[in-house]
């Protein structure tokens, strides 16, 4: 994977306070074009808050968010979406009373800057990619969970994003559905879209992410190539646990430093 020298997204000491508590504490990060970055951490570590800050849904208490060399710190969510940052929601948020096709069209029209007719073509393309084309005329509310997650993905793709943040798109899916999702995410990244994968399923993170960032109590606890991060004693203690570390060591054949 070739990495551009300038990052697509750069966080400079980003913090967010909730009534005095640091939900996100002084986080600095750089994301490059076409890479898949894992974002992991225990519940309440600030992963979703970080996504909300980047997508403009929450305002940053201090620090700077720079997308494509331009500060988007104070911009509104719809402007950020139009600039090329797409996200999925942990709890899927389809337009329930619209059809699957219309849901994806919504992404293509406003952030994808298309007219209604071109948006429909783009939406069908995205539905074919996510293997939902046969359900296009079904109301989004009638989809099963796995398909709703895919719909979120299709909707984000239709937005023509440069950065795509996937907030637990695999939670609640079965094993074969996860395999399919992993393939899909890989082929999205291959088109040059930067992807942030927020996951509790370590299997997904290890399969996808070359680089992983671990959040703990809102701060970056560890960052680096996924393999190394998984062996970091701090990460094992805070999040992964010894059992996982042992299993990971057995499968990857590299000894793991035990936390004291």
């Amino acid at each position: 994977m070739t990495k551009a020298t300038t990052p697509v997204l750069e966080l400079k000491s980003v913090s967010r306070l909730f009534e005095g508590i640091h939900a996100v504490d002084n986080v600095s990060l750089k994301l490059y074009a076409g890479e898949i970055v894992g974002l992991i951490g225990p519940n309440g570590a600030g992963k979703t808050t970080l996504v909300n800050l980047i997508s403009g849904f929450l305002s940053v208490s201090s620090g700077d968010v720079i997308f494509d060399g331009e500060s988007i710190t104070r911009k509104k969510p719809h402007v950020i979406a139009q600039n090329g940052i797409a996200r999925t929601f942990q709890i899927v948020q389809p337009f329930a009373r619209m059809t699957v096709l219309e849901n994806v069209m919504a992404g293509a029209i406003y952030a994808g800057h298309r007219g209604m007719v071109q948006a429909r073509d783009k939406a069908i393309e995205c539905l074919e990619f996510t293997k939902l084309a046969h359900l296009k005329d079904m109301p989004a509310s009638e989809l099963a969970l796995a398909n709703r997650k895919r719909l979120e993905l299709a909707k984000s793709l239709a937005m023509n994003p440069r950065l795509l943040m996937l907030d637990e798109v695999n939670a609640g899916l079965n094993s074969s559905e996860i395999d399919e999702a992993i393939q899909m995410i890989r082929s999205i990244a291959a088109t040059g879209i930067t992807i942030v994968v927020i996951e509790h399923l370590m299997r997904v993170v290890t399969a996808l992410a070359e680089r992983t960032v671990v959040l703990h109590h809102g701060a970056v606890a560890s960052e680096g190539p996924t393999e190394e991060v998984m062996r970091d004693p701090k990460v094992i203690e805070a999040y992964l646990g010894n059992k996982f570390a042992q299993r990971f060591a057995e499968t990857s054949g590299v000894p793991v430093a035990r936390p004291a």
Binding site: F57, K76, R87, F95, A106, Y110, M116, M159
Partner: peptide
């Protein structure tokens, strides 16, 4: 009913948060 303005209004009716996330100036 047929333009992106009305389409956006229908999105807003169902979910304002999701509407702004697809780039609609709600």
């Amino acid at each position: 009913d047929r333009t992106q303005f009305g389409f956006g209004l229908r999105c807003i009716r169902q979910n304002e948060q999701a509407a702004s996330m697809v780039g609609i100036n709600v």
